[in-house]
Write a protein that binds this DNA or RNA. Structure first.
Lengths: 333, 333
DNA sequence: GCTATAAATGAAAGCGCTTACATCATAGGC
DNA sequence: GCCTATGATGTAAGCGCTTTCATTTATAGC
């Protein structure tokens, strides 16, 4: 492992000059630069990035914190972020916070201790105050799917409210009036917003919300199964089902198959997220597209623009959802 | 940010003593230890892990290199590895090599430059020689789904050959004799092994391989679609289809639906991997279970045992696949 | 050629921590 | 009490690099 000292001896220049060549951060005479580059090539020199980081407090890498490493949502997000940074010659360091406040904090500390130049945070459990304080410490970060008013210029979000509205309006436009709703865990902000959108669509068609047709699910397949069982047990009349995410929609559809309920003829189902398994569900799921890949890419661009000062296209901070119509919804007969 | 120097002044001990307390790597008198811990608590001291790494050439973290960050397979793998290390108080640093030799090498260099204590490598494009040479450099790593004879004690693999055999034998036992096979890209070792297993099962039932009933796919959904189209175009007689992975199986099933071919009544289909979307496919996919989560966990345990010298249960190096029977296969009528 | 200014380079200190070897303190045996 | 061995702690150097300020070199104008 050659060091910068060996390169400087071979090239006949100082350590500082070698550093200047490596970092292109100060003018170096062309002839000098060529000598240094030749010496580096001859020695197969690779900078020690830990030493670079200690000396400069930077690392040419970006920390990403997601809730889980598994799942269609996070895979797409991570993949798109990584691709954008790879193209810009940067590395990513990924951590998982498991929607647990303590683990989220530890993960943030881990990423900061690695001198990540910036963080992209998809966090749910830490408080707004914690994030505001983190920002006050000079930590550069951008938030995904989290809106904090005081940090508005660094939040990249989906318009969840509008997505919930679109899902329900889609069914209303198909003629459905008795629409059951399976929400996500209501402590989660996006679950709340999607539900509010659902209510707005009902209001627009002058339909009162029936609390019996609302079930709080867990954003997992089991939530959809339990919700359908719950609604059926109550002998409620409903011809359509809005699930606040695709996983719960798949659970509901699986249960409907088992109960010989025909989808969409007897029950129309719409999900939310358009995760990549949605089209494996049979019949193919009608859903609300959540462009998580685009959102991740935009977060990466935010960092490249604001932290690395590389001009870029405009930063889009709010993404609009859209209906992806497939086979699981049907006019109400 | 308090430094070790400030802690030593407050506690009235040397830097070395503070370091010894932090690292528990040398005896420290109990009273001294308590003084140091009190000083650290009062100052809110957190070690600078970059400095620790530079001084010690270690980082308390493990590098993981996978082909992609997205996809059901990798999500499960990463998640299980991370969980095992989290429980052991270690961090992971994840990189993606995209099955590209140059990117795989760069990623390995990135992870090494971060002083990762060990690497867990799921690599396809780099050569055996490169890996042997890497080992010779003293780099500690364990390979997943890659067998290199010279590095046999650090390879954790699935018995792909047996899995291919099981898939085909399952159909043979259901009475099928005309079985089409969709392989993965044949430069990939696991694709080769699965195909060999397929051939062994046929041989066991004294059936000759018909090259017309073999199609080389791409391990993606499109491979399954193209394969089915290819076989049908040839007007071949076949009652069953083995796909070398679940994604191709899903593509074939989707095409069959579009062509009004009833699964499994007219065509039985079996996949491989048992990735988590397999049960969303309709009818639910019969497949070969590839316990990638368990394999990842075992790789983590290998590191904990061999790199961190923490005794552990025995290391299982070869995992056996098994048939997961669902709804996409059926007796041949 | 001389002077002033700008450009290029070098010397030295420091980033925060680890660790080998030196030194000091303590305990046990004679 | 003295000597020896062991345990505990301190000192100093170093990990590989960056960056500030001092020094040297090159250039332009007179």
């Amino acid at each position: 492992m050659a060091t910068i000292y060996e390169v400087s001896k071979l090239a006949g220049v100082s350590l500082a000059t070698v550093s200047r060549v490596i970092n292109s951060n100060a003018p170096v005479r062309e002839a000098t630069r060529k000598k240094v580059e030749a010496a580096m090539a001859e020695l197969g020199y690779r900078p020690n990035s830990v030493a670079q980081s200690l000396a400069s407090s930077r690392s040419n890498s970006i920390g990403i914190l997601v809730s889980e490493l598994n799942g269609p949502f996070y895979g797409v997000l991570l993949s798109r972020i990584e691709a954008e940074f790879r193209a810009a010659g940067k590395h990513v360091i990924i951590a998982a916070g498991h929607s647990n406040e303590s683990l989220e904090r530890e993960s943030i500390e881990f990423l900061r201790s690695r001198n990540c130049d910036a963080l992209i945070l998809h966090v749910e459990a830490v408080s707004d105050d914690y994030l505001i304080e983190l920002s006050g410490k000079g930590c550069a970060f951008v938030l995904i799917n989290r809106y904090v008013e005081e940090l508005a210029d660094r939040c990249i979000t989906l318009n969840n409210h509008y997505g919930g509205y679109l899902a329900t309006r889609h069914l209303l436009e198909l003629g459905h009036r008795d629409i059951a709703y399976v929400s996500g865990p209501m402590w989660k902000h996006d679950a709340q917003e999607r539900y509010n959108g659902h209510r707005e669509a009902l209001a627009e068609f002058h339909i009162n919300v029936d609390p019996a047709l609302v079930f709080e699910g867990d954003f997992q397949e089991t939530g959809g199964e339990q919700a359908l069982a719950h609604f059926l047990q109550q002998n409620l009349k409903f011809t359509a089902l809005v699930c606040a995410n695709d996983e719960m929609a798949s659970g509901a559809i699986t249960s409907a198959h088992d109960l010989k309920i025909k989808i969409p003829e007897q029950l129309s189902v719409i999900g939310f997220d358009n995760v990549n398994f949605a089209h494996y569900i049979y019949p193919k799921l009608t859903t609300i597209d959540y462009p998580i890949g685009d959102i991740g890419q935009m977060a990466a661009r935010w960092v490249i623009k604001n932290v690395y000062q590389q001009p870029n296209t405009a930063i889009q901070e709010v993404f609009e959802p859209r209906v992806v119509q497939r086979d699981s919804t049907h006019a109400c007969s």
